[in-house]
Amino acid sequence: MEKLIRVDSRIIFAIITVAVVVSLVLRFELPIPASEPVQGVYEKIESLPKGAHVMIAFDYEPSSKEELQPMAIAFLHHCFSRDLKVIGMTHYPGAPGLAEQAMTSVASQYQKKNGEDYVFLGYKPGSTSLIINMGENLYTAYPKDFYGNDTTTLPALQGVESLRNIDFLFDLAAGSTIESWIVFGKEKYKFDLGAGCTAVIGPDMYPFLQSKQLVGLLGGLKGAAEYEALVNKKASAVSGMRPQSVVHVIIILFVIFGNVVYFTTRRARHA
């Protein structure tokens, strides 16, 4: 029993790795019902008319790509399939490569053109001051897009002067940007805000759902999988739910096993 409690952690790593590989290779279906927060983002997009402006803030870097890139792709599928004008931007210097890849690859599937149907503004530092600047005038915050085009001439931005003219803003966040968008953007410039975030910060966002400061929330890979299922574009997030579920069961078993061993050895010591 004493040996079991001091088991080499590498054995646990190996078990988890094998469980992930096996459950990825073996194909089995798991139900992925959409939760209320995910449904909130989906229904908001469904309610927008053709040509409405949706801004996506790609506020993440490659270290969070595995959770947020599937969300970005599923969300872009939904926007382009509903003929919405998509405006991309980011607060993170490591994001432009990922954002551009997601936007161009999904846009090409719907024959959408850069500058006409979507625009990628790129990265700017400043965080909260950038949000305030965009809230006052989008063109002074971003005089040029990511490719160096003059933003005042882009048809995709027609009718947009500032954040006040954005119909929906969706923040894909790996850090504290959702709070920044709420505090310095949504509350002042009155646009509807939804968010997708890494699982780590997910629980901190629930109070904003309760207060309706967020219309919806996609939390972690599970949120991405639910959205993929909703828009019928099942990809890496949905297939990631198999290992996620299997490993969660294994971890629960480990926790129960560890507690049983701990209390058994403690009782044996006191006896």
Binding site: T17, V25, A199, P203, D204, G220, K222, G240, Q244, I251
Partner: peptide, 22 residues
Amino acid sequence: ASFGYTVMGRLSLLIGRIQFLL
């Protein structure tokens, strides 16, 4: 709840990398 979400998040990163490798 926060710890459960953290486990889910870290595991998602592992799943993503193993998906890439496979």
